[in-house]
Design a protein around this nucleic acid. Structure first.
Lengths: 216, 216
DNA sequence: ATTTTAAGTCAACACCTGTACACTTAAATT
DNA sequence: AATTTAAGTGTACAGGTGTTGACTTAAAAT
């Protein structure tokens, strides 16, 4: 209280164990198995620490998992906000956004692999948390689209449907990309080109769309 | 050799163990964890048989997994062939096909859950096997589309791209459907309606598409 | 009727798992 | 300088794991 340091972190003899545990888990996810199949002991072993040390930082493995999930999406959210700041959509911007996104995927391969494998295979808690994050992206994309003049005649429900279409596909293509070897640059280029075409096709379909039956 | 029975199956004192093991594994996938997280012992326990009996039918768990995978896709392939026999596509047929498909998903929930959870989280062998099956569906869909007169001007590569777009989305919606409770019929109806709209939007985009840069 | 064989059981093994408990130690607080 | 406390270690235990080998049994083949 009297000191100026407002009860900051107190360093032990070596204080990077928490980060080491997170890094070890991610490394095992990349080269061994989905997070939900990792054992507490192998994570601590990879982190170079004794099993019981784990409990100094997380109550159990699922807590570690939720922390990794948060870490995975926080930077992604930040990046997507920047991408979406850009001007109105056209085919040039579409390509650019995809390049930025897939580049981000490549630079954060471990985190995306972690999320991808837990999305369907994790605990119910984990699955719901991930699906909530993805739904947030969908909502934000739908809100962005609502600002485009040429989509004025599309009602909110249909905007959500369109955003879902985009997110579903980008998600699938991300997983396809993650299956490729890191060095397979031509394969990654192909996925990128496919993605661009698919989103352009969606873009065409959106242009044709008329929201008939519901409130506009 | 001399007998007319050409070395048929020989019944033990009780011979449904193989099927019991497969059923037990599927049941555990539905209500406990992805197949890759199941232990040999809990599967045999659920099947009402001693652990070592497992080896009379499968060399290891991964062999059981591949058998379940085959079982999952064989009937699905058969059904899809029938659906695709139908006449030219229009919006009426689109709705019908989706209803047939999602009804099939609902009636084979365990198999789809099994596949869905292994698609990203299984062993490399399992993942590749599943992705190969899905790629086959995409190819067949692309071939079907090639027969439609109004797609004459679309080249093979773009047909593949379009089929991939459809399959990606149906896959994602299937997983969304599997996350719903079995009794949540209104939720399932919503997914079906969203699916219909999304595929109709793709249908519009396909109509606008021109394959410019490649060989037509 | 006898033999062969597929399909089941039982006991045992070496290993890995999560976690409780007591102990140490170094940094931060006082 | 003394004390408190967060973060590390070591030991131990009960329980689950895959797989072995030897034994039993009933059905099929001879």
């Amino acid at each position: 209280m009297t000191k100026e340091t407002t009860s900051r972190s107190r360093k032990p003899k070596r204080g990077q164990t928490r980060e080491a545990l997170m890094a070890a888990a991610l490394e095992l996810v990349v080269k061994k198995a989905p997070f939900s199949a990792l054992s507490l002991r192998e994570v601590t072993k990879k982190a170079g620490v004794v099993p019981t040390a784990f409990y100094r930082h997380f109550p159990d493995m699922s807590a570690l998992g939720l922390t990794l999930l948060d870490e995975s999406f926080r930077t992604l959210r930040h990046m997507m906000r920047q991408v979406r700041q850009e001007e109105l959509p056209n085919e040039r911007m579409l390509r650019g956004s995809l390049e930025v996104y897939f580049n981000y995927v490549r630079n954060n391969r471990a985190h995306f692999l972690f999320v991808s494998k837990e999305l369907a295979g994790g605990t119910p808690t984990m699955r719901n948390a991930i699906r909530r994050e993805i739904r947030m992206f969908t909502n934000e994309l739908a809100m962005d689209m609502a600002r485009f003049p040429f989509l004025n005649h599309v009602n909110a429900e249909d905007l959500q449907m369109m955003a879902g279409l985009v997110v579903n596909n980008v998600t699938a293509l991300t997983q396809e990309m993650l299956e490729l070897e890191e060095i397979d640059e031509t394969g990654q280029q192909e996925v990128l080109m496919t993605a661009e075409k698919q989103l352009r096709l969606i873009y065409f379909g959106v242009g044709m769309w008329r929201s008939d039956k519901s409130s506009s």
